[in-house]
Simulated assay, not measured.
Amino acid sequence: MVAFDSAEYLDVIGPLETFATAAAVTSDRQAYSLAIAAREIRPLSASSGLAILPTVDYAALAEADTVLVAGGAGIEAASQDAALLEALRHAARGSCRIASVCTGAFVLAAAGLLDGRRAATHWNWCARLAERYPAVTVEADPIFLVDRGIWTSAGVTAGIDMTLAMIERDHGPNLAMRTAQELVMFRRRPGGQSQFSAELKLQATPHRPIRTLQEWVLENLAADLSVEALAARAAMSARNFARVFQRETQMTPARFVEQARLQKARELLELTARGLEEVAAACGYGSADVLTRAMQRRLGVAPIDYRRRFGAIWNEPSEGAKDHARH
Rank of each mutant, 00 (worst) to 15 (best):
2 V>L: 03
6 S>M: 15
12 V>D: 05
15 P>Q: 11
15 P>L: 04
15 P>R: 01
15 P>A: 13
18 T>D: 03
20 A>N: 02
22 A>T: 05
22 A>Q: 04
25 V>Q: 06
30 Q>L: 10
31 A>I: 06
31 A>Q: 06
33 S>N: 08
39 R>V: 06
43 P>D: 07
45 S>K: 05
53 L>H: 09
58 Y>H: 09
61 L>K: 05
64 A>T: 06
70 A>H: 08
73 A>I: 12
77 A>S: 12
85 L>W: 10
95 S>D: 15
98 I>R: 00
102 C>E: 01
111 A>S: 08
116 G>N: 02
117 R>L: 15
117 R>Y: 09
128 R>M: 14
134 P>C: 06
136 V>F: 03
142 P>E: 02
148 R>K: 10
150 I>P: 00
151 W>N: 02
154 A>W: 00
159 G>D: 02
160 I>A: 04
168 E>G: 14
170 D>C: 13
170 D>E: 10
184 V>S: 10
187 R>S: 14
193 Q>P: 00
193 Q>D: 15
199 E>V: 11
212 T>Y: 08
212 T>E: 11
221 L>F: 09
232 A>W: 00
236 M>D: 00
236 M>V: 00
240 N>G: 01
244 V>H: 08
261 R>I: 09
263 Q>K: 03
263 Q>R: 03
271 L>F: 14
275 G>P: 10
277 E>N: 15
280 A>P: 04
286 G>Q: 10
295 M>A: 01
295 M>C: 09
298 R>C: 08
301 V>H: 01
311 G>R: 00
313 I>K: 11
315 N>I: 05
316 E>W: 03
317 P>S: 15
318 S>T: 11
318 S>D: 14
319 E>I: 11
320 G>E: 11
324 H>Q: 11
325 A>S: 15
